[in-house]
C-alpha cells in the first residue's frame, strides 16, 4: 500500500484543528502503527494513549472516520483506500491533548457502585462451588476491557451530558456482572433506579455495536437490569404482597 493521508485532531483542552500527515502503510498495519510512525517521523509530541497494542487493555480508544474504535485493532486495509483517514479523540469526555481524553469520570463512577459481597463459603476450606453455566453468563460481562467506547457513543452522555445522573453502558455491564454473580448477595436495584438513571437508556444499542469485545451490552446486561428494576419497584402484585406483609421495598 502506498502513502496514506491522516487528518489528526491536534490541540489542547478542546481547542484544536485537524493537521494532515502522510505516512507509508505496509501490509497488516493498524491505525495505531500509523500514529507511532507519524510520531517517529514528524510529530514527536503527538499525544496518543496506548498500552498493549493487542486489543486487551482498552487504552487506545479514538474516533476513526467518525466511528469509536480501538486504534490497535483497526487495520488500515479495512478502511476505504485512497481516502484520508480522520482521527479524533473520544468526544464524550473532556479533552486533554490531541487524541487523549480525560476518562477519570469513569473511575469515579465505578467507586460508587456497591462492591461485591459474597455469600458464606460452601466448603470448610473457604471455597465455593459454582456451575460453569452460571459462570458463563457473567464471564461475558467480565470480558470488558474498559475502553469506554460504549460510554463515548451513548447519546445520554455524548449528546445530553448526563454524566452527573447517569452511569452509562459500561457500568450497567459492571452492575449486571455483580447482580448476576452466582455468589453475590448485594442489592443494587434501588441505586440503578434512583442514582444511576437506568431509565434514561432507551435501548438504541449503539453501545453494543461499538463494543470491541462483542459484549451484548443492551440485550444481556441493560434490559435484564431494567426488568429487575421494574419487577422490584413497579410490579403491582409484589407491591400488594409487601403491603400485606409490611415489608419495605428495598
Amino acid at each position: 500500500m502506498a502513502a496514506t493521508t491522516f487528518r489528526v485532531w491536534r490541540g489542547d483542552k478542546g481547542k484544536g484543528a485537524f493537521t494532515e500527515y502522510r505516512t507509508d502503510i505496509t501490509e497488516g498495519m493498524v491505525v495505531l502503527d500509523a500514529m507511532h510512525q507519524i510520531q517517529a517521523e514528524s510529530a514527536g509530541d503527538l499525544a496518543v494513549r496506548w498500552n498493549c497494542k493487542a486489543g486487551k487493555c482498552g487504552s487506545c480508544s479514538a474516533e476513526i472516520n467518525g466511528q469509536p474504535r480501538l486504534m490497535c485493532m483497526t487495520r488500515m486495509d479495512e478502511l476505504p483506500a485512497n481516502e484520508p483517514v480522520t482521527l479524533e479523540p473520544m468526544r464524550a469526555f473532556p479533552h486533554v491533548r490531541d487524541l487523549v481524553t480525560d476518562v477519570s469520570w469513569n473511575y469515579e463512577v465505578k467507586k460508587k457502585i456497591r462492591k461485591f459481597t459474597p455469600r458464606a463459603p460452601d466448603a470448610p476450606d473457604g471455597s465455593w462451588r459454582m456451575a460453569q453455566e452460571d459462570v458463563d453468563r457473567v464471564q461475558e460481562f467480565r470480558k470488558c476491557i474498559e475502553c469506554f467506547l460504549c460510554q463515548d457513543v451513548c447519546h445520554v452522555l455524548r449528546d445530553h451530558h448526563k454524566h452527573d445522573e447517569f452511569i452509562g453502558p459500561r457500568f450497567f455491564v459492571y452492575t449486571a456482572a455483580l447482580e448476576m454473580h452466582p455468589l453475590d448477595t448485594g442489592d443494587r436495584l434501588r441505586d440503578l433506579k434512583e442514582d444511576q438513571a437506568i431509565g434514561y437508556c432507551n435501548i438504541t444499542k449503539c453501545c453494543t455495536k461499538v463494543c470491541p469485545e462483542h459484549i451484548t451490552i443492551t440485550d444481556n446486561a441493560i434490559i435484564p437490569l431494567k426488568e429487575r428494576v421494574v419487577d422490584e419497584f413497579y410490579d403491582p402484585v409484589v407491591k400488594l404482597v409487601r403491603l400485606i406483609r409490611g415489608k419495605k421495598s428495598s
Binding site: 473457604g126 471455597s127 465455593w128 453475590d184
Partner: peptide
C-alpha cells in the same frame, strides 16, 4: 481462593470447583 472471595470467576470443574 482469596481472589474468588473478591469476585473473580474462574472456569469450573464439573463438580463446581476451580478448573
Amino acid at each position: 481462593h482469596e481472589l474468588e472471595a473478591w469476585g473473580a470467576l474462574f472456569d469450573r470443574t464439573p463438580d463446581g470447583r476451580i478448573l
